[in-house]
Design a protein around this nucleic acid. Structure first.
Lengths: 340, 340
DNA sequence: CTGTTAGCGCCTTCAT
DNA sequence: ATGAAGGCGCTAACAG
């Protein structure tokens, strides 16, 4: 019967030191306390193994110093890095991270996750919003709880926003292919209803002089299965394009596998420029040329934005901010140089 | 001046319905309430946008229904999947996950992270303990807060424990090489002070008939850099072993890169059996044969164990449990079949 | 089935 | 610089 040992409270310290609760509270919250009393409190606290109950102080203060991070999934490295970096930044500033994902639930189940965070009285929410989240998140913002959205732009959502310069990233990929003499190019991309996919495609297309024929633009779900299938479709075209751009990590993964299976030589018979997956890019042969997203910077920026909303000048509500970070090209050996 | 809009409380519902706080509380906690009153409360609650303040009820009840997850890092897929799966399971059972990692801090900084979790009054802690965490975690356990350790065995830690059958996993790798006729084999592994590394090596060695000469056992830090360096060292041996086992994901990553750079053909000139990294294994050419850890099962088991400790039969404290899950061989094309 | 009462542990006026 | 008192929002006896 290992009952939880009741932890020490101010009252216990009071019993030892004879000081009032108010003084003890001041000690813990940076108020003025006589040196002698400070030491008495410190000694008592240590002998008791006292630990401030942050839940109780949160109740009293009306602020938990906890940030909710709400993500659709935690199985991609991208999503997860966001949590990792945000947690690190926020903890350094005295905040905790409460996690909620939608994993496995039916669509729209993120309301549950959101309810959980709100019920726990988080002071703010960092999220990758889906379209269906917009109404609920709008309510949250209106109730005065700041929301920082990452990655996906959702029209109508009045939140601070941090994202990749997707158009620029797509353009980098297109320009790299053009620079290497590629004229007939294919694209494997997600549904254009997803803001990132539309923008990456637009940027890519803007860099390529000739219009890309529809049969070389394969849109579908953001899965490696689709990347695989889409690459097979592109490879079966005649004439075959000389290069392909895969606009997301999973699509890239599937595309590489399809090329390997096809017997074509990557970077010789077919060029590929991928997206994200810096580790994946190092183990293919030849190594993969990719556009890399500054994931850590994105997450850091989101956490910083949240922190500023919470501790910045409260009298100036200011407009929602919008931060765009640039992607970068990581050159491997998967893009051949063509000569005219 | 967007002050946080005060959220509705029981008192507001009371004002509308005329019912007492106790009745309203019962409504939210599954007590007996007259149907008419249930409806009145429901209606009032909805019109107010009421949401139960779980922090306040936690304070009152002495239980937060929050589990702390304490990890040394969140940048590996392994660690992260643990969070993902545990969160999913625990949320389904009414628990939240509070995250804390040690990222970037000096060694022993996990005390901060642990303090943060305890200050937030978590009901339990799931962790991958480092050696230096043992004293602090022991204190936690003694105070009656259950701890479930994953992956790393730390002597002296009296917690429930969930891990891979590392010896068996190593054995699988060794046996696979033996089955394919390999007699001279190398191993890239981490420091034997790490329980998983020692056990994987022992299992591997047990499956291989001949003793493995010391120059073919490369121990070092668990990084891709070391995997790379270690593979280069092994490849420079004369005679060269015909196969190598890399005992962890990062080591495998580095080993693959080294082989690619060496000009040797994977699965022909040199065989490799890796560890984890199911995605990585699919994009190499040929695909990689690996021993895969059932990460999701491990995390699920840890979460289940925690849940049982918290809600199981409290009168039977029972001994710490120990759960070992088997790894599995994922056969790719990186192990050549040798004939005598 | 419902209401009254008394806190959980802490912070914050307001006196002193 | 310190103390006394009240209450954050909720739950758990205990009466009725």
């Amino acid at each position: 019967m290992t009952r939880r040992k009741a932890s020490a409270t101010y009252t216990d310290i009071q019993r030892i030191t004879g000081l009032s609760l108010a003084t003890i509270s001041k000690y813990y919250n940076g108020g003025n306390v006589l040196e002698a009393n400070r030491e008495a409190i410190k000694a008592a606290s240590e002998s008791l193994g006292f630990r401030l109950n942050r839940n109780a102080s949160a109740l009293r203060r009306g602020a938990t110093r906890t940030i909710g991070v709400l993500l659709p999934s935690l199985h991609s490295q991208f999503h997860v890095s966001i949590v990792a970096v945000a947690e690190q930044f926020l903890r350094a500033h005295g905040y905790s991270v409460l996690l909620a994902s939608d994993e496995g639930g039916p669509l729209g189940r993120s309301r549950d996750a959101l309810e959980l965070l709100l019920g726990r009285q988080v002071d703010g929410i960092i999220t990758m919003p889906s379209h269906s989240d917009v109404p609920a998140l709008t309510g949250v913002i209106e109730s005065g709880i700041p929301v920082v959205a990452i990655d996906l732009w959702q029209p109508g959502l009045n939140a601070d926003f941090v994202c990749l310069d997707n158009r620029g990233a797509g353009w980098l990929a297109g320009q790299h292919l053009v620079d290497h003499g590629h004229e007939s190019v294919g694209v494997i991309v997600g549904d254009f209803a997803i803001s990132t996919m539309k923008e990456r495609y637009e940027g890519f297309a803007a860099a390529v002089p000739a219009a890309i024929p529809p049969e070389l633009v394969q849109t579908g779900p953001l899965t490696s299965e689709w990347g695989h299938e889409a690459m097979n479709r592109i490879l079966s075209q005649r004439p075959r394009p000389t290069a392909v751009f895969a606009a997301n990590y999973d699509l890239t993964l599937g595309a590489v596998i399809a090329i390997n299976e096809s017997g074509l030589r990557l970077g010789q018979d077919i060029s590929l420029i991928g997206f994200d997956g810096i580790e994946l890019a190092r183990v293919t042969q030849p190594t993969l040329t990719i556009v890399a997203q500054p994931v850590a910077d994105l997450a850091h920026e989101a956490a910083r934005t949240m922190h500023e909303r919470l501790e910045g000048n409260r009298s100036a509500p200011s407009e929602p901010s919008m931060t765009r970070l640039a992607g970068s090209l990581v050159v491997g050996g998967s893009v051949a140089t063509l000569r005219a």
